[in-house]
Write a protein that binds this DNA or RNA. Structure first.
Length: 457
DNA sequence: TTAGAGTCAATATC
DNA sequence: GATATTGACTCTAA
């Protein structure tokens, strides 16, 4: 099983243009006819079928580390070069929907961060890329699809012409649009920008809000608690992904070749990202939130406050590290805002996330809550992101061997490219690095000791 | 139970 | 029309 031999052959299979792949044809062409594998969703689509006895899962399990970023990059190139759509590619090759493909191509996770299931599409992509014929095949499919579409369209046009009038009234009566039935489909919730802003601010204060906090948020925002919960889930994971890709890009810039080496990447991305994908992933980017409690001092440095005890001491170091960032006018309000709104810090503390909730208290408080808002938006600006990026700025330090720590470190570490941007002096950075590593270390310890307090940011 | 991962699919945007 | 975004769902693991 683990024989190096099989691994080797697999490596060849996956990494090199392998003849074995020629396969696909048969299995592919048949499904192509009309239905783009899509529906088969769970059934394995792809051109792998020819791959013999090895199921995709097996392939994945045995696959050597793949350069996910490189793979997606190539796929994107191929798709655009050949004018192939994500939908077709996703449905026929990956067995995924267009949205998933888009997401995957835009924000691939590094291999080591992927679960077996998550690796599947990348193996498929790699295999697909390996055989240039596959592009041709896909193009054929595209043509066929087009033909089929035209056919359908023609026939439906004539159909609709004949029953146009009636269809209006029919609508529900016929299965065509089984819409109202039990109104099975819940309308999609679309959060208003202010709501998102508020949630983001809340996130900055507490990436892992307690149920109580969630309820408060839900109440304040007039949302369902489940929506708030889901939003936090999504936001967290998307922020993470955003970070990974930025790390990779940063790494690619600073060190040409290796596209996917996991750790030791700059964290500049975290702040500059503003890629707005995940809608705000931009600012905070509390990368390994869970793993390190990072966000506490990293982007919402303010948060650490409170908690007292060990946490307090832990964060006071972080505070220091953050000091300069704070000195910048823009970030200042940001930090202060959070600081103040976190005045009572723990879960009991009402989150002041809505701009209008600022009515309470005195001016300073209102300033605080609004400043969180303004702070964030400024956070989004390139300018400020640069300033803020100095916060976690550190040079990666030696220490810690665990992967976890490494990745955490990488979040704080600065690639040369990134660091060259700001003028911070090295000693200061090193000092911060040490401090932050210290924080990380202690947080991890605390975590393993199960001291919940420590994780309440 | 909760969080993370992977997706879907509706909607927004280009 | 293609692609990007994002709320929600499902599954898995701790």
């Amino acid at each position: 099983m683990s024989s190096s031999e099989s691994v080797k052959s697999l490596t060849e299979l996956v990494q090199q243009p392998c003849p074995a792949i020629d396969t696909s044809k048969d299995s592919k062409t048949q499904e192509s006819s009309e239905t783009p594998a899509s529906e088969s969703q769970s059934t394995t689509p792809l051109p792998l079928s020819g791959h013999s006895a090895l199921s995709i899962q097996e392939l994945v399990a045995m696959s050597p580390e793949l350069d996910t970023y490189g793979i997606t990059k190539r796929v994107k190139e191929v798709l655009t070069d050949n004018n192939l759509g994500q939908r077709l590619f996703g449905e026929t090759i990956l067995g995924l929907t267009q949205g998933s493909v888009s997401d995957l191509l835009a924000r691939p996770k590094p291999w080591h961060k992927l679960s077996l299931k998550g690796r599947e599409p990348f193996v498929r992509m790699q295999l697909w890329l390996n055989d240039p014929n596959n592009v041709e095949k896909l193009m054929d499919m595209k043509r066929m699809e087009k033909k089929a579409y035209m056919k359908r369209r023609h026939s439906s046009v004539s159909d609709s012409q004949s029953c146009e009038t009636s269809s209006v009234g029919i609508d529900y009566s016929q299965g065509a649009s089984p819409q109202p039935q039990h109104q099975l489909k819940k309308p999609r919730v679309v959060l208003a920008p202010e709501e998102k802003e508020a949630l983001k601010r809340a996130y900055q204060q507490k990436p892992y809000p307690s149920p109580k906090t969630i309820e408060e948020l839900a109440t304040q925002l007039n949302l369902k608690t489940s929506t708030v919960i889901k939003w936090f889930h999504n936001y967290r994971s998307r922020i993470l992904r955003e970070l990974f890709i930025e790390e990779i890009q940063a790494g690619g810039q600073s060190q040409a070749g290796s596209s996917d080496s996991p750790s030791a990447r700059s964290s500049r991305a975290v702040h500059s990202s503003e890629g707005d994908s995940c809608d705000g992933v931009d600012a905070e980017g509390p990368p390994e939130a869970k793993q390190s409690g990072l966000e506490a001092d990293e982007y919402s440095n303010a948060t650490p406050k409170s908690q007292g005890g060990q946490a307090e001491s832990v964060f006071e170091v972080g505070e220091e590290a953050v000091q300069d960032a704070r000195s910048s006018e823009k970030t200042e309000s940001f930090h202060l805002g959070i600081m103040e709104s976190l005045e009572d810090t723990d879960d009991e503390g009402m989150l002041k996330i809505m701009p209008n909730s600022a009515t309470e208290e005195d001016a300073s408080t209102s300033a605080a809550s609004t400043s969180v808002l303004t702070g964030e938006s400024s956070y989004k600006s390139k300018e400020s992101s640069e300033k803020i990026s100095s916060v976690p700025s550190t040079s990666s330090t030696s220490a810690s061997g665990s992967e976890k720590t490494n990745s955490i470190q990488s979040l704080f570490s600065f690639s040369e490219a990134a660091s060259s941007k700001n003028t911070r002096d090295n000693t200061l950075r090193k000092k911060k690095a040490a401090n932050l590593n210290n924080i990380i270390h202690r947080l991890e310890k605390a975590a393993s000791r199960e001291e919940p307090v420590e994780w309440e940011f």
